[in-house]
Design a protein around this nucleic acid. Sequence first.
DNA 1: GGCTACTAGTTCCTTTTGGGTACTATGGCG
DNA 2: CGCCATAGTACCCAAAAGGAACTAGTAGCC
Lengths: 128, 128
Amino acid sequence: MTTKATLPLVPAASADCDAPKDVYAAACPCRDLLDLLANKWSALALGALEQGPQRFGALRARLQGVSPKVLTQTLRRLEDHGLVDREVFAEVPLRVEYSLTGLGRDACAPLAHLRTWVERNIDRFPAA
Amino acid sequence: MTTKATLPLVPAASADCDAPKDVYAAACPCRDLLDLLANKWSALALGALEQGPQRFGALRARLQGVSPKVLTQTLRRLEDHGLVDREVFAEVPLRVEYSLTGLGRDACAPLAHLRTWVERNIDRFPAA
DNA sequence: GGCTACTAGTTCCTTTTGGGTACTATGGCG
DNA sequence: CGCCATAGTACCCAAAAGGAACTAGTAGCC
C-alpha cells in the first residue's frame, strides 16, 4: 500500500496554499522561509551582522569553523531573500561589505532569542 | 598559501571551549544544540507537541510533507537531547505517544517566536 | 619584470544528510 | 486465511554540507 492511500497528507484542495500563512502547510512559501532562517549558519550570520556591517573575512572569523564556500552560499541566499545587502568597494585589496536590510534587522529578533536561549540553557542538557 | 597561514580561524588555545557558552565557538556544545533547534522539522515538531502529546501518525499528518523516516530521525534526535519523551503503549494496534519534557516546553518559546515571525512577515519578502 | 601579499571568493572532491518508496512486525477482525 | 491498522525500518538515490586547494585582480617591493 502506498502512503497516499493511508493518509491524506495534504488536504489536496489547497495545492496553491489556501491558508497562505501556515508554516505547517507543505506548499506555503513560509516553509521555505522557515528553512532559510531555521538554519545554523543563517542564524549565526544574521546575528553577526546585527552589530554592524561586516566584511567577508570578518564574518568568516566570527563564524568559527565556517568554510568560505558555505559562508558564500549562506550570504547569497540571505541576499536573494532580501535579508542582507552586499556592497562591493573597488578598492585594493578588494573590499566587500555585508549589512542587514530592514527586513533582515527585523528577522534578527527571533533568532537572537533562539541563540541566547541556547546559551542560557545549555547546562540543562544531557552531556551526550 | 594555505588557509591556516592567512587566518587564525580559531584562537587555538580554546580547543575545549574556554568560553563555554558561545554559539559562535565551533567547539562549544552550544553549536550542536543550535544546529538541532535551528532546523525546520525540529521547529515544526516541537511546535506541534506544544499542543499536547501526539501520536506518530498525528505528527506525520500535522507536519505536512514529512516522510516517516525523517520524522523518526527528528523525534529520536529530540528525544536523545532530552526535549521530548517517547512512550510506547503495548496496545493493538501499537500506540506511541510523543510529548514535551520540561526542557522541550521551554525550548518552544523561541521557536514559536520564529514561526510566528515568519508567518507574519512572509508578505514582505520578494516573490522570488 | 618577477615575486609576494592581500581579499574574496570559486572549483573540485569526498562525506554526510535529506528524502522517497517499499517493506516489516504485531495482532484483532471477518 | 487475508486484510486492516500503526509505527516504524531498509534500501536507494539525489542533494547538500564541508574541506583543501586553487583563482582573480591589484599593489608594493626588490
